[in-house]
Amino acid sequence: MMGKRRMRKYSSIGTLALFLGPSLLIIALLRVWPVIQGAFIAFTQWDGIRPPVFNGLDNFTRMLSDPVLLTALGNTGKILILAPVWIILPLLLAAVIQDRIPGASFFKISYVLPVLVSPAVIGVLFVIILGPDGPLNIVLRGIGLGALAINWTVDTTLVMWIVAGMLIWSTFGLGVLLFSAGLASIDESLYEAARIDGANWMQRFWYVTVPSVRGVIEYWTVMVVIMAFSSAIVLGYAFSQGGPGYASTTVDLFIYNQAFRYGAPGYATAIGITLFLLIGILLVIFLRLSRRRGELMFDDSGTPL
């Protein structure tokens, strides 16, 4: 009889240990434990070689009054401003490739090629293309726009935007791949219904496609945020070495410099951990909010496994 069966609240320990155990163990060992140690380092004055010396909140007060850090944050902020493009453009392209034009495989592979090319090579390539007498300027002069043929690589106002653009351009292919996989599983009948209702392509995109791949969009957004804060370093350095001045020094380059070139890993760790805790928490809030329609993350109706 139904009433007699006792519903377990949780899955069995054995099952959990098997499925969850190995991953959690590795995460604990290689990601959590070092962070705990890192958390201690953040409160020390440490040069990486000598024993760390506890200095309380000094690193944190230093963070608040460091003008270069502020500039670096602003530079990373410029990347973040372009984040919506970074997130939506691949989806748009994936949808377009999927539906409207032939040769989807070709396009997907083409778009992802920059990911296979080392960011250092991309940086060097763009230094050549955007050089004072490089192909871009030659073309600009040739078509009469010589006034625009400035020194792209050392223009303090533009250089960060150029780096941000390069970053997006060299990674959007991954998004296209991701979204292509997601799009392939959308129910065709939804589009049919929309078409019958008289929706054009753009409307079908926003009202059918986008909601259907919401999970993928969330995941890609997290990836974009991670990339915004950590992948500008090799590319940016190869292109402009963080300069001129600090015009293209991003936060991750700043942290890297502090930790490994300026002998201040204590300070660097403090910045790193603070910043990324903030991002992590913001992302959690973002994800909580994006599940607005009262739907639960977990569905625990029914019998447990």
């Binding site: 050392v154 300069g243 001129p244 001045g245 600090y246 410099n257 070139r261 300026y262 002998g263």
Partner: peptide
Amino acid sequence: QDAKTNDIYQSQLELVMLGQ
């Protein structure tokens, strides 16, 4: 020069040469 000062000197001189 220590690495940080060296960086600062180099980038500052860059800016001087750019007239900034």
